[in-house]
Every structure is written in structure tokens, then in C-alpha cells.
Design a protein around this nucleic acid. Structure first.
Lengths: 249, 249
DNA sequence: CGCGGGCTTGACGTGCATCAAACACGGTGG
DNA sequence: CCACCGTGTTTGATGCACGTCAAGCCCGCG
């Protein structure tokens, strides 16, 4: 809800509808697979606690992690419009998720165009992050990929209040970081050392501190508009246009 | 239209609406930039003739090509929901495009839920291709990236009838192919030679032949469901649900 | 106390980038 | 018709970033 209200104005009814998606929370444990690649698309989830990632297992034995999901994120929208999953999703640590069905989503879309627009906007923004990663995989060296990855996490965590004194908890193993960045675990370790020696990243076990976030942002030329930007005006009016009971602010 | 009818049933009215998007075709010449990164999002386009690509120019002087667009593709949907372009788009060769506005798109969405669903489905499928590329950039070697790239083009071109005897016209320079695959132009050349020596790809200037497409498909473990798959049943009924004048098949 | 998973460090090999030079075209103007 | 050029491609030489293998280390855990 916090995420959606960033993009579009919500009425009381919208909020009730949204909460109805989160009725059946379920505890999940570290490493638990929420669904496998090629499984039928039946559910989507909101993550309430814990981290998750979507991945593809490849023919050559390696894995590519596509995206890391944090509390508040919606999982599974990637597969919206497909009958089979394009990627598996697994929990990184213990957590709490609220699954909801295709049907619930359609119903919500039908009742509140504002919510439909907002959820589509969130999905599009997730896709923008993927594109950003594609650029880094294609054209940047290991230390830039890692710096970018950490800085993006930092921004996303800050939005949900999970950063304290420029530090945050990062439950990913270095092998998993490597799978996300297209690097070997060994090289991730070396790259962390490099960033430490340059005073950009301090890490102790699963705790990461970015002593000078702005310096990191400059290093990776971070463009944060795609994470936070509000919807263009045209969208607000479109959402209002078809709304039956929810005039927009 | 051909692309949409693959995913959802179109009524006569839908077809009229679609054609209204293509009223103002414009000739464009090779290398012409349709829009720059960070430009205001005003237009989308259907490509009627010619190839285009979306790209990002990077701080380190290199370029990453995100996607190649072929005749029949809709360009610009990546930026749907943003006020600024996330990537530039340029023509590869001379062509013909039909621009349409945000507003036209909204109007079309309002009139035909079936079309809205179909266009969203096309957009989601484009994103699936991007994800596929991300996987290849992260975890596969040059010859696999190139083979995958060529095979994907081959499938997409075959759908629009631009393949003859397993061969097609490919107006991209090797530098551009490199920018798409995260490789140097020099290495693209060497990789082409490699695939030629293995009998997988024959190339003469801008003409490419895949003598044994199935062998290529096996090499890259190509999963073509994401290109062609029809919409799941739930979508058809959703499209029908809100339609005022267009009962679904 | 021993075990195992994750992290570190070193040695070594290699895939790809980079630089540079030569080559093959198509287009242009003389 | 042929010199001329520019752009794109090929080929070679060299270097480096990263992968792989392997050994040791740290720490939590049974």
C-alpha cells in the first residue's frame, strides 16, 4: 500500500481492497521454493517479511538470479499474462508472505482502475530495474556491478525504513550475489575486498555499511528516477476516467 | 494486428480501432533517432517497415542495445508509465513508422478491454525476451549469446514471413550486434567465424542463413513458448468481462 | 570436539578487450 | 573506367579481468 500510494492516489475503498489481498499470510522458511520454473501460474504474493529472489536454472549448471524481492514487493507479476512460470522463486531467509490468486487480482482491477494502474506501474518499475541490471551485465566490470547492486538495495531498503546509519542487513550469500551479477563467488569476495579497500563498502558477515552513499552513487552514475518517480499526469486522469466511485485527488 | 490476434480475439470494431493508430505513417531514414534517453514520453510507434533498436549510452563511452524491433512491433511501451524515456530509440535502416499518442492509447484501452489486454500481453512478452537476454549476458559465452540472438531473430522474422530457405536479411553491423550482446565488434567477428566453422551459421554481408535451425535451437536450449504463447484463459474472460460491445469467441 | 558451510587467498588458465594493420566493399568524383 | 575514400570486416599480438581449482580459515552448530 505504501508502495502504491507513491504512484497514485488511493481512496478508502482502494485500501480495503488492497488489504483483502493480504488476508491469508503464510510463514515460509529460508530456502523454501515458492514455485519452480514452468510451474502453472496460479498465485501472486506480497512479501510481508523476509527476502526472496527469482531465478533461472541453466543448462550449463549455473544459475541466474533475476531479481531480489524485499518486504512490500509483489512477487510473480513477471508471469502475469503467461500460463507457465518463466522463473522460479525462492526465499532467502525466513519470512511471511500473503498469496493471492489471478482471480483476486482481476477482481481488484475491475473494481478500482486506480489500483490497476498503480499495480501496473509498480510492475513496469520492476522491469526498469531489470533493464538496469541488463545494462550492467553487458557493459560494466565486476566492481561497478557490485557497487550498483548494493546501492540499489540501499535505496530500496531506505524506502522501507530498513537502513540505519547507512547500514543494512543483507542475507544473501556471496554465491547468490554472484548468481545475480553474473560473477563467480570467488570473484565476488575479491570485489568486496576491493570496494572495502577503497572505503566504499564495509561488510561484516551479513551486515553491510555504505560509509559514503553519495560517492557510490557517483561511481555507478545511479539514476534513481526509475525507482521512485510518480506516475505521469495522464495516468491519474485515466485512472479517474473509468473509476465509478473514486474521484482522484 | 497480426500480433494481437495471436493473443486475443479481435472484433471488427477492435480492428477499426487498431487501424486508427496507423493513420499517420512517416518515412524515416537509417540512423535516425526517434527519441533520446530522458526525452519526454509523448509518442509510441508501430514499425511498419525497417528495423529499429532501443539503447542506452553509458558513462564509460560504450552503448548497450536493449532490444531490436522488427516490422509489426510496437516501440516505446517500455516507457509506458514514466514521464521520461528510459532509453533512446534509433532506426537501423530506412523504414516507415506510425506514431500515436499516449492519449490515443488510453482511448483505445477505454474502448476495448480486449485490445488493452492484448497490448499488455505483447508488452509483457517483450519483457520476457529482455529477461532472456539478461540470462545470456550473465551466464553464457560469446558463441552461445550470438547463437541465441540469431535464433531469436530467426523465429521472430519467420512469424512475419521474412525468412526464406532458412535465410534472412540482417541490417545490423557487427558493432551493433556487439552492443546488444555485451561484446566487442572484433569478438563478434571471431564468433561468427566460429559458428561458421561449426556449420551453424552462414553469413554473407547482411544475409544470414541458419542451415540447421534445430541444431541451433538445441545449442541454446531455446524456449520459444514466451514468444508465441496465447493468453491464458483467465485473460480472455477478463477481457470479455468489461467489454460493452464485443463478446469474445 | 568435530563437522560443514561460507568466506578468503593463492596459483593458474582462458575468454574476451584492446590496439593495430590489412582487407573488402560500395559510393563518389575525376 | 579508374583513383579515392569511408565504413565495415578480418586477422594477429598482447594484456587483463575473470573463472576455476585447491587449500586454508572462520564461525556456528550438533
Amino acid at each position: 500500500m505504501q508502495g502504491l500510494s507513491r504512484h497514485t492516489a488511493l481512496t478508502a475503498e482502494d485500501k480495503t481492497l488492497l488489504l483483502s489481498l493480504e488476508l491469508n499470510p503464510r510463514r515460509v522458511s529460508a530456502g523454501e521454493v515458492l514455485w519452480q520454473e514452468s510451474a502453472d501460474v496460479d498465485l501472486f504474493c506480497v512479501i510481508k517479511e523476509g527476502w526472496a529472489y527469482s531465478y533461472r536454472n541453466l543448462g550449463n549448471g549455473s544459475m541466474q538470479i533475476l531479481k531480489v524481492y524485499l518486504p512490500g514487493d509483489i512477487i510473480g507479476m513477471r508471469d502475469f499474462g503467461f500460463s507457465r512460470r518463466l522463473a522460479g522463486v525462492a526465499m532467502i531467509n525466513d519470512g511471511l508472505i500473503s498469496p493471492f490468486t489471478h482471480q483476486q487480482l482481476f477482481e481488484l482491477f475491475g473494481r478500482s482502475p486506480a489500483l490497476a494502474v498503480g499495480i501496473i506501474a509498480l510492475t513496469v518499475r520492476q522491469q526498469a530495474m531489470l533493464t538496469e541490471r541488463l545494462v550492467y551485465l553487458g557493459r560494466y566490470a565486476a566492481h561497478e556491478r557490485l557497487a550498483h547492486f548494493l546501492y540499489e538495495l540501499y535505496l530500496r531498503l531506505k524506502r522501507i525504513g530498513a537502513v540505519e546509519e547507512n547500514g543494512f542487513h543483507m542475507p544473501l550469500s556471496q554465491e547468490q550475489v554472484g548468481d545475480a551479477l553474473g560473477l563467480s563467488a570467488v570473484h565476488v569476495s575479491r570485489t568486496f575486498s576491493m570496494l572495502r579497500d577503497e572505503g566504499l563498502v564495509i561488510r561484516d558477515r551479513q551486515h553491510v555499511v555504505l560509509p559514503d552513499p553519495d560517492a557510490l552513487a557517483r561511481l555507478v552514475e545511479f539514476n534513481d528516477t526509475y525507482i521512485d518517480e510518480a506516475l505521469p499526469v495522464a495516468f491519474q486522469s485515466f485512472a479517474g476516467m473509468r473509476s465509478t466511485s473514486a474521484p482522484q485527488a
